[in-house]
Simulated assay, not measured.
Amino acid sequence: MNTISSMTGAASVQYNSNELSFSITVKTVNNRFLDAYFKLSDNIAHLESNFRALCAEYLKRGKIE
């Protein structure tokens, strides 16, 4: 898959089931370098490095919150 060079945008999604519920909001702006910032709940904070790696796999630059 190709990487995205830069992007500006926002998206939000919510998921609910009997076993799991979560919401994700992503905001991006153009930036010279890749800068990913996450606000994670304590029970998934250990996954932050995985999220960073996933962002780096598909994005070359931009500020992602």
Rank of each mutant, 00 (worst) to 15 (best):
M7Y: 09
M1Q: 08
S17E: 03
E48M: 02
N2A: 12
Y15G: 01
S23T: 03
E48N: 07
E48R: 07
I4M: 15
R61K: 09
S17K: 00
H46S: 07
S41L: 06
E48P: 02
S17L: 02
Y15Q: 00
K63Q: 10
T28H: 03
V13Y: 07
V13G: 05
R61C: 04
R52N: 10
L40M: 02
N16V: 10
Y37T: 15
L34Q: 01
A11W: 01
G62T: 03
H46N: 14
K60D: 11
Y58K: 15
A53W: 06
F38G: 01
Y58E: 02
L54I: 14
I64F: 15
E57L: 13
E65C: 13
K63R: 14
E19Y: 11
T28A: 14
N31F: 03
A53E: 15
L20R: 09
E57N: 14
L47A: 08
L34H: 01
M7V: 14
K63F: 08
M7T: 11
D42H: 02
L20S: 10
N31W: 00
Y58S: 09
V29H: 03
I44P: 00
A45E: 12
F51V: 07
S5H: 13
N30G: 10
H46K: 12
F22E: 01
N2M: 12
S12N: 10
K39N: 14
L54R: 07
I64Y: 12
M7E: 02
K27S: 07
K27A: 07
